[in-house]
């Protein structure tokens, strides 16, 4: 149900393009630096184009990152799907099926977002060892659990804004709790799922702290490999920038893919139906 472009809106491209330039400036520096040689990196010439187009940095970065790529996917996909699903169910219950004490449960869960992860590294590692969960499953578990507050928040606030009549109609038709969820809420939650999946995928993909303490060198995800491209003393920013762009590509593809589901009118459609 695409809204027709009104001619009068064309002026919007002016601010949009201006914003695009703001967003692209740092990106431009990252991209051109990725093509530069080590001796070309200099603050004075940061805006200058590289002397030649050579893919050496990208090839070097890829060879260092590729062994970790699969580890990242194996951990990020279940972590983001599961925490999104949990968040959706929690949000549904907390917004629409409140039980006694539900209003206390919401802040209880939400508070978990603010925990400074650096300060709980030790009990986290001890717990995982005690429970016998190691490597990628442990890392995925950590991302699921520490993702629950933010996914619950997003879904609860979204569901809370939906009119109660929407549910009542389905209940009249005899749908039970899960039925209402499946038939009514799930279809119109798609934009929220997109929002939450973008968050979870990005934060799990880019996480370094949990990854480095919960996994060993055989199952390090890509961020650890990316960090490790830098030495402790001399850092080759050209290779580092090339590597960061490569490491960000899967996330960008997820954005582009999920972005297609920002459809307008899903809610309107279900209201009519």
């Amino acid at each position: 149900m695409k809204v027709k472009l009104r001619l009068g809106d064309s002026w919007l491209y002016i601010p949009l393009i201006a914003m695009a330039i703001f967003y692209l400036l740092p990106m431009y520096v990252i991209i051109i630096t990725g093509f530069k040689g080590f001796e070309e990196i200099d603050l004075k010439t940061m805006w200058d184009l590289p002397k030649g187009i050579a893919f050496d940095n990208y090839i070097e970065a890829f060879s260092k990152l590729s062994p970790s790529l699969w580890n990242s996917f194996a951990m990020v996909i279940p972590a983001s799907l599961i925490s999104s699903a949990l968040g959706s169910l929690n949000g549904y219950v907390l917004a629409k099926w409140k039980f006694r004490g539900a209003d206390a449960i919401f802040p209880f869960i939400l508070f978990g977002m603010f925990i400074p992860y650096q300060s709980i590294m030790i009990p986290l590692v001890q717990f995982m060892r005690g429970a016998g969960i190691s490597g990628l499953p442990g890392l995925a578990l950590a991302h699921v659990i520490y993702g629950i507050p933010i996914t619950t928040l997003t879904f609860r606030n979204y569901y809370a804004s939906l009119p109660q009549e929407l549910l009542e109609a389905a209940k009249m038709d005899g749908a039970d709790m899960l039925g209402v969820y499946r038939l009514i809420l799930l279809p119109i939650s798609l934009p929220s799922f997109v929002v939450v999946l973008i968050w979870q995928f990005t934060s799990a993909w880019n996480d370094f702290l949990f990854a480095v303490i919960l996994t060993g060198n055989k199952d390090w995800p890509i961020t650890v490999a990316l960090n490790n491209m830098a030495g402790s003393q001399i850092i080759s920013w050209n290779v580092q920038m090339a590597g960061s762009l490569l490491a960000a590509l899967p996330t960008l593809l997820v954005y582009i893919f999920l972005g297609r589901y920002f459809l307008r009118g899903l809610l309107a459609g279900s209201l009519k139906g």
Partner: peptide
């Protein structure tokens, strides 16, 4: 079982994570 949700999907991907030591 808090671990169950993760253990299930992760189990299939675990071989890569086999204990190195």
């Amino acid at each position: 079982a808090t671990e169950a949700p993760v253990a299930a999907p992760a189990a299939t991907e675990a071989p890569a994570a086999a204990e190195a030591s």
